[in-house]
Simulated assay, not measured.
Amino acid sequence: MNPKNGGHKTLIFARAVLCVALLLFALFVIWQGMLYRGADSPEELVRTYLQALHTRDEPRIQRLVLSGYDPKKEISKRISQFEGVAPNRVSATFITNQIAPYLVDVDLAIPRNTEIGATQIITDRLTLQSNGGRWYLVLGVYRGSE
């Protein structure tokens, strides 16, 4: 057996192992990205959305939005609208759709203090959609499926 040939086989084997490891890592990253999109329930989606608004976490909100929508302008508008409001101060009313059970509307009531010290309630409606067992925000401009 030629020692040079044995070294060459070891190098080929090491490269093959490295390629398989990189492929498995890439699949894991893709799977994790899919796992952290949307939410398991409408309630969890709204809770996560309100927390992300409170922390101004635009990337997290984008991961909650149904694929095919461009939510950037809407997210900026909503972050400004909710600024300074703790998520536990926002009330949410869930409205199920009897005709299309994969859609849920959520009315949010946001208390804001006015300049004269009174409390004003601002309302906002979200539409949620179930897709593949996960719930997503329908937010922004529809650009088509990705």
Rank of each mutant, 00 (worst) to 15 (best):
G140E: 03
L23Q: 12
V85P: 03
D70G: 13
T93Y: 05
Q98D: 15
T114P: 00
P42M: 04
P71M: 00
R37K: 14
I122A: 10
R143M: 03
D124R: 10
Q32W: 00
R60Q: 08
L128R: 00
N97S: 10
R78P: 07
S80V: 10
S145D: 06
L139S: 12
I79Y: 00
V65I: 14
L103T: 11
V138L: 03
I121H: 14
A14D: 04
T123Y: 08
M1W: 07
S67D: 06
N5I: 15
A109R: 14
E43F: 13
S80T: 09
A118Y: 05
N2H: 09
T119D: 04
W135C: 05
T114R: 08
S76T: 08
N113D: 12
L139F: 08
I79A: 07
S145V: 06
N2V: 15
E146V: 05
K77M: 13
G144Y: 12
P101M: 07
R15G: 11
L126K: 15
Y69T: 07
L103Q: 08
I122M: 08
R15Q: 14
D57Q: 06
N5L: 15
D57M: 03
M1T: 00
V138C: 01
L11V: 09
A109M: 06
G33E: 07
N2T: 14
Y69H: 01
I95Q: 13
V141T: 14
Q120H: 03
V17C: 15
V85S: 07
P3Y: 14
V141S: 10
E58V: 03
M34C: 11
T96F: 13
S67G: 10
T96M: 09
V90D: 03
E58H: 13
S130M: 06
R112I: 01
T48N: 08
S41I: 04
G38D: 09
R15D: 11
I110G: 00
D70W: 13
I116N: 13
Y102F: 12
W31N: 05
R56W: 06
G132Q: 12
I121F: 12
L126V: 12
G7L: 12
R134V: 00
D107G: 11
A14K: 14
Q62L: 10
L139E: 02
Y36A: 13
E74C: 07
N5D: 03
P87T: 05
A92S: 15
T93D: 02
P3F: 10
S130T: 00
A39M: 02
A109E: 05
I95D: 10
T48R: 07
Q120K: 06
E83Q: 15
Y142M: 05
